[in-house]
Amino acid sequence: MDPQTEIELQAAAFRRLQQHLMQDRTDVQNIDMMNLAGFCRNCLSRWYQEAANEKGIEMDKNEAREIFYGMSMDEWKSTFQTEASPEKQATFETAFKENVLDKK
């Protein structure tokens, strides 16, 4: 496979993942994704931001999230986010440390 085709397929897979998370499975909470997989929608938007910044495109966290989510974080939270149990929050603290903070 040539490199350009590989890039196009990777981009198509990313767009499909984004659609799946933002339209098909809005019921899945970010905290559950982080606790189970070590990443969430915010991670994906951060990786998008980092890629843009590496290309010299200035983009902050909120801009990246709005691009990825298709709405502001406030809108997403008020529409789709539910309250997490204390147990989920405790698990998240560990998952976030291991998968985000310790990776920096």
Rank of each mutant, 00 (worst) to 15 (best):
F39L: 13
E87N: 00
A52Q: 12
A90I: 09
F80A: 07
M33G: 00
C43S: 11
Q18W: 10
H20I: 12
W76K: 00
Y48C: 08
N35G: 03
I57F: 08
Q23D: 07
R41L: 11
T94F: 08
D2F: 06
F92I: 02
S45R: 05
I57N: 07
Q23M: 09
T91Y: 07
S78L: 14
K97D: 12
Q29C: 02
F80K: 01
N53T: 15
E63P: 05
A95S: 01
G70I: 02
R46M: 12
S78Q: 13
A90N: 08
E93A: 13
P86K: 09
N30P: 13
Q81I: 11
T26Y: 04
N99Y: 00
H20M: 14
S78I: 09
K55N: 15
Q23N: 07
Q10T: 14
R16C: 15
M22R: 08
V100P: 04
F14T: 15
A11D: 12
R46Y: 06
G38D: 01
W47A: 07
M71E: 02
A11R: 07
M59H: 03
W76H: 00
F39G: 12
L101G: 09
L101Y: 06
W76F: 09
I57P: 07
E83P: 01
I67W: 14
F68W: 02
K61A: 07
G70A: 06
K103S: 02
G70N: 00
A12P: 06
R15T: 13
K55F: 06
M34H: 01
